[in-house]
Nucleic acid binder design. Structure first.
Lengths: 211, 211
DNA sequence: ACCTCTAATTGATCCTAATCAAGATCATCA
DNA sequence: TGATGATCTTGATTAGGATCAATTAGAGGT
C-alpha cells in the first residue's frame, strides 16, 4: 500500500517544522501537497460537537494533503520535529496527469493517504479497547525507525486516545493489560519493547479480550 | 461535495442489477468505474475478525469503485434494484488526465466517494447510538427521492446496524426514541416521516441523549 | 536542585449498548 | 389463503468503557 512517488519532489527544498507546529489547517485551500521526510505528523479534525479526533498518523515517505478536495480535510500538526518537501497543487496535478496516461502510480498515492483513515473507520466500530491498542501498535511498528524490537514511542497517550476514540485512562489500562500478558514491555517512559509480535497481531485481530 | 462528472459516461449503455446482486467484489481487480443512476448500493467489507461492515451507501449520481487502489476496497451490493453505467479504468484514467490539466474536477469525484466513508469514521468514535441514528437519517434524507418529508426507507435495520456499528436491537431502540421525541414517525413499515428536521439535525450533532 | 506544569497511573462508580431470550409482524411463495 | 422464514420489537441482564477523583511520575525552565 505504500507507494513511492518521491521522484515528483526531486529538486524541492527540504523544509522543517518543530513539534506542535501546524503545517496546514483544516478548511484551508489546499494549495500545497506535502511529503514527509522524517518525523511524525498527526491529521487532526474537530467534529461538530467540538471533540478532537486524530484521523491518521503520518510517517517518513507519506504524502499529505493530496487535493481530492478543494480544501484540506484535516489539520496537519507535527508530533515530533519533522522535515518535509512540498509542491504546488498545479505542479502536482500536472504530474498526476502524466502518470494517469502511463501507469497510474500517482493515483495510488491517493489510495495510500486514504488507507489509514479507512482502516481506522473499520477499527472503531467493532473492536474493544485492547484490540484497538494492539492494532495501533502493529500499524506503527514498521513505520518507526527501530533497532530490533525496541523503540521510542513519541506519541502521547492523549493523542493515542484521540486516534482510537478512547479516553486516556482506557489507553493506559489497555497498555497495562498488554504488559500483563507479556506481549509488550515499557522499560522506561515512552520506551516500548515488543516481546511477542505474533501475539500482538493476534490481539489486534480478535475481539476476544486478552486476560 | 457532490460532484457532477456525468459527462464522462455519455454514450455508455445503461445497465441494471436487481436487489442483493453484487456489482463487484472486494479484492477484485478494479477494472471498471461505476456511476449509479438509480437505486441504492451498499459498500460492504468483511473485517479480519469476520464482522460485516457497511462503509457507505451510494445513491443516484454517485461514483463507485474509483481506481485509487489496484483492487476494489469493498464489495458493491445492490440494496434495491439499480441502474448504472460503467467505464473501463483506462478510459477513466484518460479522462482524469485531461481533467487534471484543466480544472481538476474529476479529482474531486474521488473526494466525493471518500467523503461518506470519512464521515462514518468520525461518527463511530465519539457518538452515542441515537446520535448516530439521527446522523444517518440526515445523511440520506436529501439523497432519496421523496415527496416532501415522507419517504420509504428501503434499507433494513440490519444494514443500518452494520453501517453504524450497532446491533439491530439498538437500531430499533434508537428509532423508537426518535419517535418518542416526535422528531420522526413511522406510519407504516419502512415508511418514514420527518416531523422536525431541525431537531433531527440537532440530535445528529450533540452527544446529549434526546430524552 | 528546586519549582511548576503536564502527562501518566490507579481506583470507584455509573451508564450505555451488547447480549440473551422471547414474541410479533411482515414478506414470499406454494 | 395459509405456511414458513426473515425482520422487527421488547424485555432482562451483563459487560466494558466513560467518568469522576486523587496520586504519582516526568519534563522544562530558572
Amino acid at each position: 500500500m505504500y507507494v513511492n512517488c518521491q521522484d515528483e519532489f526531486l529538486g524541492e527544498v527540504l523544509l522543517t517544522a518543530s513539534a506542535k507546529q501546524t503545517m496546514f489547517w483544516e478548511g484551508q485551500d489546499s494549495a500545497y501537497i506535502f511529503q514527509l521526510r522524517s518525523g511524525i505528523v498527526r491529521g487532526v479534525t474537530i467534529s461538530e460537537d467540538g471533540e478532537r479526533q486524530i484521523l491518521a498518523f503520518f510517517f517518513a515517505g507519506d504524502h499529505i494533503g493530496l487535493p481530492i478536495t478543494q480544501s484540506y480535510r484535516f489539520s496537519a500538526e507535527a508530533v515530533t520535529d519533522v522535515t518535509y518537501v512540498r509542491q504546488t497543487r498545479g505542479h502536482w496535478n500536472y504530474a498526476l496527469a502524466e502518470s494517469c496516461l502511463k501507469d497510474g502510480s500517482m493515483l495510488r498515492c491517493i489510495g495510500a493517504e486514504q488507507d489509514p483513515i479507512y482502516r481506522r473507520g473499520m477499527l472503531l466500530g467493532r473492536q474493544g479497547a485492547v484490540t484497538r491498542m494492539a492494532a495501533f501498535l502493529c500499524s506503527i511498528i514498521d513505520r518507526l525507525p527501530q533497532d530490533g524490537v525496541q523503540f521510542d514511542l513519541p506519541i502521547s497517550q492523549q493523542d493515542i486516545a484521540d486516534y482510537l476514540a478512547l479516553t486516556p485512562e482506557t489507553v493506559c489500562r489497555s497498555l497495562k493489560r498488554l504488559k500483563q500478558s507479556d506481549i509488550i514491555a515499557m522499560p522506561a517512559h515512552n520506551r516500548l519493547v515488543i516481546h511477542d509480535r505474533d501475539a500482538l497481531e493476534r490481539a489486534a485481530q480478535s475481539r476476544a479480550t486478552c486476560s
